[in-house]
């Protein structure tokens, strides 16, 4: 650390200076790590904390950072809300006389919407693998005329803004009579997931040696068999990355779902969640509980599969 040697050039010997520099470095790292942890986690922690507060406690001024009487009532309200017994102002106020009822009648849609999200995401994942894997194999391992053009074509489709697709999608889907169906979401989500999936897979396949392909072909495998028996087992990490990204993108997608869904038959979690936030009569404690439910699955996925996600993100990225 040269600044140090300049300011302390006199009596302190080299080793001691090194020690001070090392200490200073540790201090900066510690401070940085602390700031980063707070930056990334504090907002979420506050959301989680307030989802365990009663409707009365959540309006404290200044706020209670830790719930004084932690309660599960917000989550219970979500899980017990069913078609038969709608939780309304009247039925709710009996339980919590202090604040009356702030549970919306749409609360019962929350759990079904999570199923919708799950179904859509799963189908999109499967379709991504089905179309992405063979394409990536061809682009990475077959030297054919038009390969570069195909690569650029897929990259261009990757940068099309989703909002530019909304109008044409809407008109076509309406004409097909597919508005308010899960199918419309599955189809349109392919536009925002497939290009990136192919991209990750191509990068990975290119890293596998060409000799594998040749060896398999010499042994009498067809191209398809070579892909299935040789490359697929080796490319597991990239397949996991594709599954994760596609799943998270579909689970989190909002704009297209907002345009094409109308009822609980097809509404995904983000849509139901967004409807809560625009209703001023709903307590924030309830909205926050719903928000926590939306956050938990993707965060668990991200934390558990951290390694795959980081390698997938960086595969598609910036190697200088």
């Amino acid at each position: 650390m040269s600044q140090f040697s300049q300011t302390n050039s006199g009596g302190i010997d080299y080793r001691r200076r090194q020690k001070v520099a090392r200490l200073l470095q540790h201090l900066v790292i510690l401070l940085g790590a602390a700031v980063l942890t707070i930056y990334a986690l504090a907002p979420v922690t506050w959301l989680v904390s307030s989802s365990f507060q009663t409707e009365a406690e959540i309006v404290s001024v200044p706020p209670h950072w830790i719930p004084e009487e932690p309660t599960l009532q917000n989550f219970e309200a979500i899980f017990s809300a069913t078609e038969e017994e709608e939780i309304t102002y009247e039925t709710r106020s009996g339980q919590d006389p202090a604040s009356g009822g702030y549970i919306p009648s749409t609360a019962k849609n929350l759990i079904p919407s999570m199923w919708n999200s799950l179904i859509v995401a799963s189908l999109v994942v499967v379709l991504n693998l089905l179309v992405g894997v063979p394409a990536a194999y061809a682009l990475a391992k077959i030297r054919f005329w038009g390969r570069d053009a195909s690569v650029y074509f897929i990259l261009i489709t990757r940068v099309i803004p989703d909002i530019a697709l909304v109008v044409p999608f809407f008109l076509v889907i309406r004409k097909l009579g597919m508005l308010d169906s899960l199918g419309s979401l599955v189809l349109t989500y392919l536009a925002v997931t497939v290009p990136f999936s192919v991209f990750i897979l191509v990068q990975y396949f290119e890293g596998l040696p060409d000799e594998l392909d040749k060896a398999a072909r010499v042994d009498g495998c067809s191209r398809f068999q070579a892909l299935l028996r040789v490359f697929l087992p080796l490319s597991l990490p990239s397949l996991v990355a594709v599954v994760l990204f596609t799943f998270l993108t579909s689970w989190n997608e909002f704009l297209l779902a907002l345009m094409f869904t109308q009822t609980e038959a097809s509404q995904t979690l983000p849509i139901v969640l967004a409807a809560f936030t625009s209703d001023f009569t709903i307590s924030f404690s309830f909205i926050n509980a719903a928000g926590v439910l939306a956050i938990v699955p993707p965060v668990i996925v991200a934390v558990v599969f951290e390694r795959y996600i980081v390698s997938g993100l960086t595969a598609g990225a910036v190697k200088g």
């Binding site: 979420v44 983000p270 967004a274 924030f284 956050i295 993707p298």
Partner: peptide
Amino acid sequence: TILLVPWAIPYVANALMWKW
């Protein structure tokens, strides 16, 4: 790993969190 938490959160949940 902590850094991945904001990345994974859906935008809608992110929005309602900041609204609050």
